[in-house]
Structure formats: structure tokens, C-alpha cells
Amino acid sequence: MDLIKKIPAYVERIPNGGILMTGLDWVLNNAKASSMWYMLFGLACCAIELMATGASRYDFDRLGMIFRATPRQTDLMIVAGTLTLKMAPRVKLLYEQMPDPKYVIAMGGCTMHGGPFYHDSYSVLKGVDKIIPVDIHVAGCPPRPEALMNGCIALQDLIRGEKVGRKRDRPGLRHIDPATNLPLLVRPDTGLIRPNQIIMPDQLRVLS
């Protein structure tokens, strides 16, 4: 009965049992937030911390997070590590292979702006939000497992606040096409970005 008190529900007592009435948003969002399956992939040293978070000491499973080895079964992509320009088209392809609704956590300084590789590096993508929309950024080099789990809890809160059927507003997205309010998939000069294309940051200016 304690649990029932916590949920935004209306319980009606009738002589032979009860009827539970609640919001569709609440049910669907809780279903989504409580079983976030993340994709099993890591790019660099942050992946070690992701593995530590998934192992028994920190135990990701208690947030309902289980890794899946295929993008087709995942809801969440944790980009853990340095994303190079060579790897970027693959990560974009993996993101596009995930079924909707899908979420992205960018873990570590590398995924925000290149981190330690911001200066003097020609091969590192300076921020994964240049190719995929990011919901949560977790800072650190690498972030501790607690920080990553905090990021996941923040993402769950974000999901719980969603409205079913309403377009999601993505706070972490740096490149939004102002005309359509969609993630930037259009290059200012030549049009669509193909999944296998190598994207240079200078091609990804926000349209103005």
C-alpha cells in the first residue's frame, strides 16, 4: 500500500477489489525509465569506468540498466571515450540503428569538446553533440561511476517529465536546425549528411 501512496494514482475501492486509475504518461515514462538498456560499446579510457559501473561493486543493474550487444535492442547510448573522426561515422550509424525512443549520455570530457585532445589534435571530434543529439553530459576525465550513475538518474528524471506523443526537447543538443527544430542533419553547403560521411566540425556550423 505504501507504493500505491507514492504514485500519482487514484484508487477506487469497490466491494470485491479495487480499480487503479493513473496517467498514461506516468505508466509509459516509468516503464521507459526503469529499463534503460544501454549499448555495449566503449571508445577509450572512459569505457573502463563504464565497465566498473556495470560490474558488481557499483551495480548498474539496480537502475534497470543492462547492456545489450546490439543497437537494435538498446534505448541508451553511453558514448564512453574519445571519439575520433574515423570512428565518428560508425557511432552515428550505430545511433541511427537504435530504435526510438533513444537517448544519449556523453561520458567524459572527450565527448564534450575533445577533453585533453582539444588542443593540437587533428583526429579527435571536438564534441559528440556535433554528430548525435546528447541528452546528458557527464563531466570528468574519467567520471567516477557515481557521476555516471548520477547522470543516468538525471536522464531517468528527464524521461519521467516527458509527455507521451509530444516531441522531445533535447537540452544537450548543440546543433539544432532552427527552421524544423530537428537535430542538424543538413550541411550548410551540400545538403544531407550521409551515415558514412566523415564530418568535420567546421561543416557543422549551426544554421543561422
Binding site: 582539444y118 588542443h119 593540437d120 589534435s121 587533428y122 583526429s123 571536438k126 568535420m200 566540425p201 567546421d202
Partner: peptide
């Protein structure tokens, strides 16, 4: 580097739009 990369990055005079000099 990717197969379609242009230039040879460890040359000292290498320049690339992605390269931010410290």
C-alpha cells in the same frame, strides 16, 4: 587515418581545420 584522409599529419607544417593550436 581514414582511407580518404588528405595530408600526412605528423609533418611539422601540417594544418587541418580540426587542429586547434595550443
Amino acid at each position: 587515418m581514414p582511407d580518404d584522409w588528405e595530408g600526412h599529419p605528423l609533418r611539422k607544417d601540417y594544418a587541418h581545420p580540426n587542429l586547434v593550436v595550443r
